[in-house]
Design a protein around this nucleic acid. Structure first.
Length: 459
RNA sequence: UCCCCAGUAGCUCAGUUGGCAGAGCAAUUGGCUGUUAACCAAUGGGUCCGCGGUUCAAGUCCGUGCUGGGGAGCCA
């Protein structure tokens, strides 16, 4: 008999003949003449109740089935006479695939997130984490679908890069040199290293994406990125996934249009496709979540220039820990005030001072700001950071000189401005932060399967 | 990296002025029951985070290290 998954089973509205399910026992209760088992197979949040009659030949063994054990059950899907579930399976055969000993760490009761992090290999077996990781999978596929439908090409940008030029933070070094040898010699000779020069894990696929946008038109990269920053917060991990669209013949305004369309599509899709799993987060994780998702899906995002934002902050009468003046990099408290108290919905801030932004962002006509944009979401903070890129070779080169950069390693990047340069723009969206927004989960370590943070790389 | 808080049974926690190590849940065993995070009873279970110090005596006080959490910075 062909196995059927529980998420399909619950779609039926009439009794079925014999079905075969396979899964893990969440709980088992004995009654007189019966044993009741809740089986979950990971396909959805719901368990299916199996009723095993004492007439079954292996009933004694069935009574020894523990929480966490794996079973295969053949039986008829029938309406349940008990309360709490519509259907149950009247077992004809219960095959015990493997028993979990009493050391199985997951209780039927709720566990803390901190404890579950110490057993990250088992936490997807819980309701909450099972739901979170099904939603994560659904969102990955929705991203690909969105871009496919818009005619973007998917660029798999390299994970190992030869330059540290992306300027987005500390990098992890990649080397095949023997640390013991290096220690003995007391110096590093990268010309002897695998690549003949310094190599690092990528901090961004943007520069690659720009090259391909100027060839294939609209592209996106979506993959792991790495930051060796010693950041110990609930919003940072050393390895995370980033989505980076890059569009040729696109300006800053088009970039914002695209960001808004993307976020709205993904939120709408989540509400549509993950309703059952999302309900768990609505009920038990974040009571404000339904309202926040509703706003994201339906309300037009605000757009405000940095200069305007500074004026609003100055006039707010609020006492900020970090004083406000033109030229500062906005702090968490400033961003929170703007998104949560002032506009009360997602807001794009654009045209930041060039002094606080990287070299590749396009200089505006005022020669003091650049065409940068951040999307601030209430309760979340910065979700998207992007810019229109500087496409004018002479302007780009003089900016790099101004910033004291060595142009030589960027010869290929500058080539793109030399041959058929066009206006183009793009942004980065932190996928885990997006998932925090969708689920209401407060710690980034809980939306990624096996989090990597300073001092911690178990699993 | 900085500031704050915490670490006691498998889990969540209590532990008074320094004086015999506790509860609930889980586990095990038995009972009851178309059960619903079942229920009732009994039993087992401890490097009180590590190291050092003060003291007749330290889970409790002091120093230090480690781990976890919250916040800040950096950023996505």
């Amino acid at each position: 008999m062909k196995r059927i998954k529980i998420n399909r089973l619950t779609e039926y509205d009439t009794s079925l003949g014999q079905v075969l399910i396979k899964g893990w026992v969440r709980t088992r209760r004995d009654a007189k003449g019966f044993s009741f088992m809740e089986i979950n197979d990971g396909s959805c949040l719901d368990n299916i109740q199996v009723v095993a009659d004492s007439q079954l030949s292996n009933y004694t063994d069935i009574q020894g089935i523990t929480t966490g054990s794996a079973v295969a059950v053949t039986g008829a899907l029938v309406p349940s006479p008990g309360k709490g579930q519509k259907w149950e399976i009247q077992a004809a055969v219960v095959e015990i695939i493997s028993l979990a000993p009493e050391t199985y760490p997951l209780q039927k009761k709720r566990h803390t997130d901190e404890f579950l992090r110490t057993i990250a290999h088992l936490r997807p077996r819980t309701n909450k984490y099972g739901a979170a990781f099904r939603i994560r999978s659904e969102m990955v596929q929705a991203i690909h679908r969105f871009y496919r439908e818009k005619g973007f090409y998917y660029l798999t940008s390299p994970v190992i890069t030869g330059s540290d030029c992306e300027g987005a933070g500390e990098m992890f070094r990649v080397t095949s040199l023997d640390p013991a040898q290096v220690a003995k010699q007391g110096k590093l000779d990268f010309s002897k290293d695998f690549f003949g020069q310094v190599a690092n894990l990528t901090v961004s696929g943007q520069l690659s994406a720009e090259m391909f946008a100027l060839a294939l038109g609209d592209v996106y990269t979506f993959g792991p990125t790495f930051r060796a920053e010693n950041s110990n917060t609930s919003r940072h991990v050393a390895e995370f996934w980033m989505l980076e669209p890059e569009m040729a013949f696109c300006d800053l305004s088009g970039n914002m249009d695209h960001g808004e369309e993307l976020v709205k599509f993904l939120v709408t899709h989540a509400l549509d496709a993950c309703g059952r799993d999302l309900d768990l987060f609505f009920k038990f994780v974040d009571k404000d979540l339904p309202k926040r998702l509703e706003i994201l899906a339906s309300k037009t995002f605000e757009r405000m220039s940095y200069t305007e934002a500074i004026k609003i902050l100055e006039k707010s009468g609020k006492k900020f820990e970090y004083p406000v003046e033109f030229g500062i990099d906005l702090q968490s408290e400033h961003e929170r005030f703007l998104a949560e108290e002032y506009v009360k919905k997602p807001v794009f801030l654009y045209d930041y001072p060039k002094t606080i932004k990287p070299f590749y962002m396009r200089i505006n006509d005022d020669n003091t700001t650049v065409a940068a944009v951040d999307l601030l979401v209430p309760g979340i903070g910065e979700l998207i950071g992007g810019s229109q890129r500087e496409e004018r070779l002479d302007v780009l080169e003089s900016r790099m000189e101004e910033m004291g950069m060595d142009k030589e390693p960027y010869w290929w990047y500058l080539d793109s401005r030399r041959y058929g340069s066009v206006p183009h723009a793009g942004f980065g969206l932190g996928f885990e932060r997006f998932l925090m927004m969708i689920t209401g989960i407060k710690n980034i370590r809980d939306v990624i399967p096996f989090p990597r943070t300073p001092g911690s790389i178990d699993f």
